[in-house]
Simulated scan of single mutants.
Amino acid sequence: MARTIEDIKNGMTAEWIRQPAVMSAYGLDGKKTFKDCFSAASLENILFYVFAFAVWSLESLFDMHRQEVEQLIEGLEPHTLRWYVAKTKAYMQGCKLVADSDYYDTSAMSPTDIETAKVVKYAVATESNTVVYIKVARQDADGNPAKLTDTQLAGLRSYLDEIKDAGVSVQVRNEPADDMRIALVIYYDPTLLSVDGNGAGILSDGSEPVRETVQSVITGLPFNGVFRKSDLMAALQALPCVEVADIAEVKVKPHNSQEWQTVSGFNRPYSGYYSINSLTVDYQPYKTVE
């Protein structure tokens, strides 16, 4: 990492002012620093600043060069899961690869066109029994993960077959969001929250903090991130209107499965993301005195 101009200059001047010839020529006693002997406007100070700036510029160029080389090396890492994820996200719908390569010619495309063509916004790769599994998803109008269309999936599979390493089996998992059912018991502060005739817990501004918090926790998970019941509990308990929160039950299942699985502690979605199908909240006023 490049040193600062001041550090470079201080090192140069400290060594220079200790030289016997310099001490003799300037009549120095060796007890004072360069700054004590030469003003900021002196020719010596200006020259050393120029020298230090030149050295700093060179060191900065070396840093930039090293970073570029590291990025190139990272991009040339075949056989790694990270490489497969990067290549999957680089897929461009409706575009053709440069002949005998694994990249596109985007010189005639605008940044907006490039971003639109990259339909895979979420991807994660795992390996099991010599097979690379890649979970993928696009982004819907609301910014949430969604299943690729049949056309997008067919194009992606063809693209991966063309760029993958010989002998490697790649399986793309393109699934709708895992279904999720959540049942809560919320003991609330009646001075802050009220429950209407439909059983909704509402603040004075009309918002439903409990439901909004649950939705935020689930949609805020990273793609293929682990859902932890303790994280949901902590988020609910942090609400000022909630005195005690209890998660009665959380059940999940892949969208196309028939069997629901009760979550005990944590769960990782089969598809990579969740969709809340049912959220039941039993509101109870919190009473400290019976």
Rank of each mutant, 00 (worst) to 15 (best):
S257M: 10
Y274V: 00
S107R: 11
M1V: 10
T116R: 10
F62Q: 11
A146I: 05
F266L: 14
K121C: 00
Y286P: 10
I218M: 01
M1L: 08
F51Q: 03
Y26T: 11
A21I: 15
Y286D: 06
D178K: 02
K35T: 11
L97E: 03
M109N: 03
Y286C: 10
Y273N: 00
E59F: 07
E77C: 15
F62L: 13
T280L: 02
S216Y: 05
A137Y: 00
R138Y: 03
D29I: 12
R181Y: 09
V226N: 05
A21T: 15
Q261P: 07
S42R: 05
S57E: 14
P269F: 03
A108Q: 10
E212S: 10
V244Q: 14
L47C: 10
C241L: 14
K87W: 01
A99T: 15
T4S: 06
V168S: 14
F223N: 04
A90Y: 01
D150A: 08
L28P: 06
C37G: 11
Q237Y: 12
I114M: 01
P111V: 04
V244S: 09
T213K: 02
L203I: 11
S278A: 12
E59T: 09
Y103E: 04
T80A: 06
K251A: 09
R268C: 11
M109G: 03
K118N: 01
A137E: 00
D150Y: 05
T112W: 14
F38V: 05
M23D: 11
V55M: 11
N129L: 08
G201F: 02
L160D: 02
R173T: 12
P240Q: 13
S57V: 12
L221W: 02
A25M: 13
N277T: 08
S24N: 14
D102M: 06
N224V: 09
K32I: 08
H255T: 07
A177W: 08
A52H: 02
F53C: 11
I46G: 05
T191I: 13
D36K: 09
A245L: 06
Y187I: 07
V185C: 09
I163W: 04
F227Q: 03
W83K: 04
M23H: 10
T112G: 08
H65V: 15
S271T: 02
E15Y: 12
D150I: 02
G201Y: 01
E175L: 14
A2I: 04
S110C: 02
H255Y: 12
Q171W: 09
M180I: 01
T151P: 03
M109I: 01
E70Y: 13
C241S: 13
F48V: 04
C95M: 12
N144T: 09
M180T: 01
R228V: 04
A108C: 05
L148T: 00
Y122R: 00
Y133D: 03
A54G: 09
Q152L: 00
T80M: 08
Y159D: 01
M233R: 13
G265S: 02
Y84T: 04
P111H: 06
I114S: 00
E127L: 10
F223M: 04
E249N: 06
S158G: 14
G27T: 05
T88I: 00
Y273G: 00
P209I: 01
K89E: 03
S60T: 13
